[in-house]
Amino acid sequence: MIPAPIDRSVRIREIRDASFRILSAHGPKALTLRRLAEELGGSSTLVTHIFGTRSALLRGITESAIEDYDEEIAQLEQGADARQRLRILLEWMLPLDEEQARAERGRIMLVGHSDRHLGVTDFSLRMEHKMRQLLRTHLRELVNDGEVEDTVEYVRVFTNGVVLSAAERPSSWSADRQQRVVDQLLRRLGIS
């Protein structure tokens, strides 16, 4: 029997999601190719066929996450005006459900890992650059040109703070509470 061909992009997403589950639950040291294969329910070749080394895995899950962001956001924002698009983006950046919270805890664990040769620093820098780029694009339509960069800084500090707070104390940061503070932020920016 010939095995069914795998869709490489689907497999990469599966590996990425499993990697963030491991990171969230056990931290960066637990993210090994063997542990990842176990999480996916198969042999190590399930992972090594796509990513031959741990370093390649970290680069790959970073690239996969960043590549998917534009598509995810575009789908969410279809038909929305500029204010609605900003609100959608802000909510997308926050861990409003358990799956998103788990992924954020995994990213936080990864960013907190200081092993530079594994590409973690690159992961952190690329993610931060992408988040700021998305904010900049959304804010250009809503604030004066001279205020865009300061507003990006302000909103990024806000989102980082909410994400970290929700990851540290999920029982205190329900989706409803996160959405209420987004409402407050938008009012303070004069964008509500």
Rank of each mutant, 00 (worst) to 15 (best):
D183G: 07
T48Q: 02
M109Q: 14
K130W: 04
M1Q: 10
D122Q: 09
S165Y: 03
L125E: 13
L76Y: 01
G146L: 08
G119Y: 04
D97M: 04
H113Y: 13
A30E: 03
S174A: 02
T151C: 04
I2V: 15
T159R: 05
E99I: 00
D122T: 11
R54I: 03
R140M: 13
S44E: 13
G161H: 07
T32Y: 00
G190F: 01
E39W: 07
R126T: 01
N160A: 14
T62P: 00
V148P: 06
R85K: 14
E38P: 10
F123Y: 15
R116C: 06
M93F: 09
G60K: 04
I73D: 01
A65K: 15
V143R: 02
G146S: 13
R11T: 03
R136T: 02
V47H: 00
F20G: 04
S9G: 04
P5K: 13
R126F: 03
E98A: 07
D183M: 02
R8P: 00
A175S: 10
L94R: 01
R140P: 01
A65D: 12
N160Q: 14
M109S: 14
L58P: 00
G161Y: 07
R85V: 05
K130M: 08
H117A: 11
A103I: 10
I22Y: 02
R34I: 14
L110V: 03
I12N: 10
G190Y: 05
D17S: 11
M1I: 06
W173E: 13
R177Q: 09
A65V: 05
V181P: 10
A80V: 06
Y69Q: 14
V163I: 05
T62F: 04
S43T: 08
G161P: 00
E168W: 11
A74L: 10
L31R: 02
L125N: 09
R107Q: 13
R105F: 04
G190S: 07
A101K: 09
G112A: 13
E98V: 00
M93H: 09
K29L: 08
R87Y: 01
V120Q: 03
P3Y: 06
S124N: 03
V152L: 01
